[in-house]
């Protein structure tokens, strides 16, 4: 809504509203900026017993390392504690989960959008109930069978479980995106001699890219942010970043090691920053798609 002279807001209201917004921005962004800044300090500065301002001035950091900024936390986490390995595992898990989720989800979502039978509703309702299940309740159902079959701890196990957990959401979202594509498109392709699958693959998918990308982003986020599944189903060697950070917490009693956790936390946040920066529009449209259409 454009501001016009007729529509101008009273001064008091616009001041309150701007102040409120500034306050919210500080609440939303300051914790991240503070932690990024602090990750380049030593523990005595960032977790100071005497004075919190040490985190800004960095007196102890200068004293201990000779400069106001230090990469010790990053070095300790990435090299000494093998965080690079966890980062690599995260890459494998997130890329596989996103790719497999999209293949299964587009096929299923397309079928749900193009069939008007009663069972589609049942599938969608069941998917909604599944979507609401706390992930950890499902994990407790997997544990024993996975131990029995000796597949516990491996990356493919976690990947396939995350794909399944992600399916209900992917189905709902892709279903609503497919509904927005006119039926005539694939029907005319089929009149021209395509099979159903060819019409899907060569005619519908090319115009579906925005929906596929948006759903892919959210599948990526689910896999990237998951803690319940990866913490319980992966062994020490295969840990992804989030459970790795949690494992830092248990062992960080030694001096300076808590900074490893801080550095790891910042490292894990950077990709998400990038994601929001490049895909802000898709994320916003994805969040609203479910709401506006559903």
């Amino acid at each position: 809504m454009e501001q016009t002279t007729v529509n101008r807001r009273p001064l008091l209201l616009s001041t309150t509203s701007s102040l409120f917004l500034v306050l919210w921005l500080i609440v939303a962004a300051f914790p991240f900026l503070w932690t990024v800044w602090g990750s380049f300090k030593v523990e005595a500065d960032f977790f100071s017993r005497e004075n919190w301002q040490l985190a800004i001035t960095g007196l102890n950091t200068i004293g201990q390392t000779g400069s106001a900024f230090t990469g010790d936390g990053y070095q300790g986490a990435w090299i000494e504690r093998d965080f690079w390995k966890a980062a690599w595992n995260t890459v494998i898990v997130t890329v596989s989960v996103t790719a497999i989720s999209l293949v299964l989800g587009t096929l299923g979502g397309y079928a749900l959008a193009r069939s008007a039978r009663r069972y589609t509703l049942w599938i969608l309702i069941t998917a909604l109930v599944f979507r609401a299940m706390p992930h950890i309740t499902l994990v407790s159902g997997y544990m024993l069978p996975f131990f029995e079959w000796n597949v516990w701890g491996a990356l493919p196990t976690a990947i396939i479980v995350l794909v399944a957990i992600n399916q209900p959401f992917a189905l709902w979202m892709l279903h609503s995106f497919f509904l927005s594509i006119p039926k005539d498109l694939d029907e005319s392709a089929m009149v021209d001699g395509c099979t159903r699958f060819q019409a899907f693959r060569q005619v519908v998918i090319p115009v579906m890219w925005p929906g596929v990308i948006t759903t892919g982003l959210f599948s990526f986020l689910l896999a990237y942010n998951d803690f319940a599944v990866t913490a319980m189903l992966l062994n020490q060697d295969n840990q992804t970043m989030v459970p790795k950070i949690a494992s830092f917490l248990g062992t960080v009693q030694t001096e300076g090691a808590v900074m490893y956790a801080v550095a790891a936390v910042v490292s894990a946040t950077v990709p998400l920053f990038m994601l929001v920066m490049f895909f802000q529009r898709q994320i916003v449209s994805g969040l609203t798609a479910g709401a506006v259409k559903g």
Binding site: L104, G108, A164, Q167, P168
Partner: peptide, 14 residues
């Protein structure tokens, strides 16, 4: 079309 997705949900959720 829906079989792979359904199978994943049955095996790993239901």
């Amino acid at each position: 079309f829906i079989f792979p997705s359904l199978l994943a949900m049955i095996l790993f959720i239901a």
